[in-house]
């Protein structure tokens, strides 16, 4: 198997620059969110679609940052 449809983008979540990586391995989509500096992981999730994996990750990040709304 291989990672497919690899994408990375930068987003501001609760005022903090984050790197959002997503890709498909097998039949699952994975999302990994880390702060841009220094790159510490805030969420790693999976889902049946890319959107589901990313949404789950963003929710986790929001909870971890003290309930601040990401975006």
């Amino acid at each position: 198997m291989r990672a497919e449809q690899y994408q990375t983008e930068q987003r501001d979540l609760a005022g903090i620059p984050m790197r959002v990586e997503s890709y498909k391995i097998g039949d699952r989509y994975y999302c990994h969110v880390a702060n841009v500096d220094p790159g510490a992981t805030l969420a790693r999730t999976e889902g049946g679609t890319r959107a589901a994996a990313i949404d789950a990750a963003l929710l986790k990040v929001a909870n971890r940052l003290g309930g601040k709304s990401p975006g």
Partner: peptide
């Protein structure tokens, strides 16, 4: 790891 994934190289669990 990032480059390996981005290049679509072989993976296993």
């Amino acid at each position: 790891r990032k480059k390996w994934l981005a290049e679509g190289r072989e993976l296993t669990k």
